[in-house]
């Protein structure tokens, strides 16, 4: 399922507790089709997600015998569904996180906030997971990097399977695949209809951060969020003071590449507004 067997073999040969994974063993074809079924694993609903595996340091210790009586997580027949709860919810999501540069830069800056990368490519996801493990071992004394993890997911289809209404305070969309052709625009990670889903999983006041080096995509993202009634653009002044903007510019893998080529980076940030009252 994950990468050609030879690579897998190499990775396993090399891997040692606390040792960083090497990118060259985790490279994968650049694009995955967001419309196809793939062989994705995803929870039937957020309540069925076992977050304790991703953030073991945040696993809540609840007295035994407290029933998990959420009817969605346990429809009739699978009452055996006992998940270990965690003490916090994920609040920051990096959608299409790639090799996770941003995640690992943000994690030590907000150690009490759970950060999750979502990535559609299997090998790339595994790289991020391995790197998180290695960093946790290396920083065992400070406890850093316990708050960062990554899951394989097609966010264009399955965002509501992972997050409940109003859960996220920040979403990052960094250097998304540009899909230049008009015919491919439906594959873009930003669209008016998808923006409704981002709005759903975000809490009012939360922010969506976007960055790209492709001017056309920048204009597209800015226009589509601006046209969506659930979002308002965050002004330049506020961006200056936002540490996340700087991190996003300098710490993403793509951001670094663009830097090396002295290219332009376009940033726009949008704030989730309160839902309007019913008419």
């Amino acid at each position: 399922m994950a990468g050609p067997p030879k690579k897998r073999q190499k990775r396993d040969d090399i891997k040692q507790e606390g040792q960083m994974p090497q990118k060259k063993f985790y490279r994968q074809r650049a694009h995955a089709n967001p419309f196809s079924d793939h062989d994705l694993k995803y929870p039937a609903s957020p309540a069925a997600m076992d977050w304790s595996q991703h953030y073991p340091a945040f696993a809540a210790t609840v007295p035994a015998g407290v029933p998990n009586d959420d009817p969605i997580a346990t429809p009739d027949h699978d009452k055996q569904n006992h998940l270990q709860p965690i003490s916090k919810q994920v609040q920051v999501a990096d959608i299409g996180c790639g090799f996770g540069g941003l995640l690992f830069a943000l994690a030590p800056k907000m150690p009490e906030t759970l950060i999750l990368g979502l990535e559609i490519r299997t090998s790339v996801t595994e790289f991020v997971q391995e790197k998180a493990k290695a960093l946790r071992v290396q920083h065992a004394s400070t406890g850093l990097y316990q708050n960062v993890s990554c899951i394989r997911a097609n966010t264009m289809k399955f965002l509501p399977n992972f997050f409940v209404k109003g859960q996220l305070s920040k979403i990052f969309l960094c250097f998304p695949d540009p899909h230049f052709k008009a015919r491919k625009h439906k594959a873009r990670i930003v669209s008016t209809t998808l923006n409704s889903e981002y709005a759903f999983v975000m809490k009012p006041g939360g922010k969506v951060y976007t960055i790209t080096d492709v001017e056309d995509l920048h204009v597209w993202m800015a226009e589509h969020f601006a046209a969506h009634p659930s979002f308002e653009r965050v002004g330049e002044e506020e961006l200056e003071g936002d540490e996340c903007v700087g991190t996003m510019r300098t710490e993403t893998e793509e951001g670094k590449k663009v830097e090396r080529n002295s290219g332009t980076k376009y940033v726009v940030v949008f704030r989730r507004l309160e839902d309007p009252p019913w008419p």
Binding site: S196, D213, D216, L217, E223, A227, H228, P229, V258
Partner: peptide
């Protein structure tokens, strides 16, 4: 394909991504 229910026409697509604005090999 504008905002849901917003009827405003959007400016036509301009393929402004040129070799100058694309900086990564990808």
């Amino acid at each position: 394909d504008t905002a849901p229910e917003a009827d405003t026409g959007k400016p036509a697509f301009k393929p402004s991504a040129t070799n100058l604005t694309v900086h990564t090999q990808r």
